[in-house]
């Protein structure tokens, strides 16, 4: 058990080091924009100002040394300083985190919460009208880009409920939840299809297995059979796609944020890419990679929590 965890940990550390180096060196060696022009901006700049900026951002050092300085900073909780705003990157990211986190978590909960019952229903009623309708709906939802779905929602909301806040800030916890509701629904709908399909497929296979007939012969009510026995086995592949789904959610959040004019991490990343604000770009991307790794580690943990068979295999 401990060995397999250590192995996983070592793999994650390797991935993090590789990814951070890859991002950093690619940006610093290939990018067409000179960082100095971003730092100094269009202001009348003297050689002195440029020299100072070079010193401040360690641009006078060789690239490998800059990388070491960057990594050292991160280990000490300093994620670098934005070229454009000249403020610590971490601060700007943290101030935008509630929006993106709320969006990703809210949408994940909503989409899984809707996809599992719908998937089970679709499997139980296989090839019947309910299954057909759910299949067609999920097919269409898979083809609608998240930004289009958000646009349609903005359109519908401004016609049907003009007082709903589709732009601007929010006040208090209630205001935050209310403001986030529509974007969360939009993102959840856009990302529901895969979870739904996997649940349906898993459930259909589970229903065919002999133990199901045994439980039925025992006289167990259908609801119990489906929700307690079938779903518990069918839900395992759903967990394994969860970490991939969270990645898709984060990218979807970028698109949804921009339509609902929420200032989250996603729109910050896009703005920074457009402005060539590299410290922000590399910090956000590295953070997202860490989030992915945590998500897949959590999925692994959840696996063995739900399925004793996996726990037993790992213990060997």
């Amino acid at each position: 058990m401990a060995v397999s965890w250590l192995k996983k940990l070592a793999e994650y550390v390797c991935i993090l080091v590789a990814v951070s180096a890859l991002i950093f060196f690619m940006i610093h060696l290939f990018s067409p924009t000179d960082p100095i022009s971003v730092i100094v901006g269009g202001k009348g700049s003297t050689p002195e100002i440029i020299e100072n900026a070079r010193k401040k951002f360690y641009l006078d050092q060789p690239v490998w040394k800059q990388y070491l300085i960057w990594v050292q900073g991160i280990l000490h909780g300093d994620w670098g300083v934005s070229y454009k705003y000249q403020t610590p990157v971490l601060e700007s990211i943290l101030s935008r985190a509630p929006v993106t986190l709320g969006l990703v978590i809210g949408a994940s909960v909503l989409s899984v919460g809707a996809a599992i019952p719908l998937g089970v229903l679709s499997a139980v009623k296989k090839d019947r009208p309910a299954d057909r309708i759910i299949s067609i709906l999920s097919l269409v939802l898979a083809a609608i880009p998240p930004f289009l779905l958000s646009l349609l929602m903005v359109f519908a909301l401004s016609k049907a409920a003009p007082q709903y806040p589709i732009a601007g800030g929010y006040e208090g916890v209630g205001g935050y939840l209310w403001r986030m509701l529509a974007p969360c629904i939009a993102l959840a709908c856009a990302k529901i299809t895969i979870t739904l399909k996997v649940t349906r497929q898993g459930m259909i296979e589970e229903m065919k297995k002999p133990y199901m007939m045994n439980v039925e012969a025992k006289g167990m009510p259908e609801a119990n059979r489906i929700w307690k026995h079938g779903l518990k086995n069918a839900v395992i592949p759903v967990i394994s796609i969860l970490s991939v789904q969270i990645g898709a959610m984060i990218v979807g959040a970028v698109l949804v944020e921009s339509v609902f004019s929420l200032s989250g991490i996603g729109s910050f990343l896009i703005d920074s890419i457009k402005a060539s604000d590299y410290p922000v770009v590399q910090a956000i991307i590295l953070m997202l990679v860490i989030v992915f790794l945590l998500a897949s580690a959590a999925a692994d943990g959840l696996y063995s929590l739900i399925d004793p068979r996996i726990r037993a295999r790992k213990g060997k």
Binding site: V244, V251, V281, I285
Partner: peptide
């Protein structure tokens, strides 16, 4: 395991 769009963002950056 990464969404294609995120990798595309890195590329464009």
């Amino acid at each position: 395991s990464f969404p294609p769009l995120l990798l595309a963002f890195v590329f464009v950056a």
